[in-house]
Amino acid sequence: MLAKRIIPCLDIKDGRTVKGVNFVNLRDAGDPVELGALYSEQGADELIFLDITATHEKRKTLASLAREIARHLSIPFTIGGGIKSVEDVEVLLQSGADKISINSAAVRRPELINELAKNFGSQFVVLAVDAKQIDGDWWVHLNGGRIATEIRLLDWVKESQERGAGEILFTSMDHDGTKNGFANEITAQVSEALSIPVIASGGAGTMEHFKDVFTIGKADAGLAASIFHFREIGIGALKDYLEREDIVVRQ
């Protein structure tokens, strides 16, 4: 059976992890490659590196980061953060990235999804979307949730799939950082509306939250950052728990 995936997300600034503190056994907790390798050993199924640097040197920094990760890690990884063009992506592919994620740039210019899918294949294109619930409906937000749009979440993910996205990374801004659980109901709606896999993000606080997002939320993968970084939940223990709850995970 295809296993449900557990994906730690690492925020990167100027080539260093941010928030990645509190790892006594790491020589350098700020080194994305070392932290990634640790997660890989613990049983992470994939990794997502999100670059939050905003400099013109970004493309070069990201490429060398991708190269170092690809050199040292033998599990798949996605790189995202400020990717705007086919040229940005070309460099990352050449550097060994398995997938890239695009967010605001795709909302501003949806043809970007088609261009990337055509040039590199759908399996390479993860469409990340941040949304908030307003008056009962879910709306796409840009720039990490700061800018509202008049695009409905379900319309946008369906359009993205048609344009060639290979996977959706859905973050509920209402749940992100709360540790009260994922947005299961809307995640299930997103998953059921699509024929491509869905990664759920935002709200993980306990092991049970992962069970819920895989069962009630019908997600294919669950993503979290701080609960892994602060060792509130170990990936090995999480997978043992999920297995006991009859959820198929890679052990």
Binding site: M1, L2, R5, E192
Partner: peptide
């Protein structure tokens, strides 16, 4: 309810006579 592409970790069944080590049977 089934997704395509088949993306992620799945198990391999390795039978007798495969070039793969039979000990890998059931691995992801």
């Amino acid at each position: 309810g089934e997704k395509v592409p088949h993306m992620g970790w799945n198990q391999i069944k390795v039978g007798e006579g495969s070039w793969l080590d039979p000990a890998l049977d059931g691995e992801y």
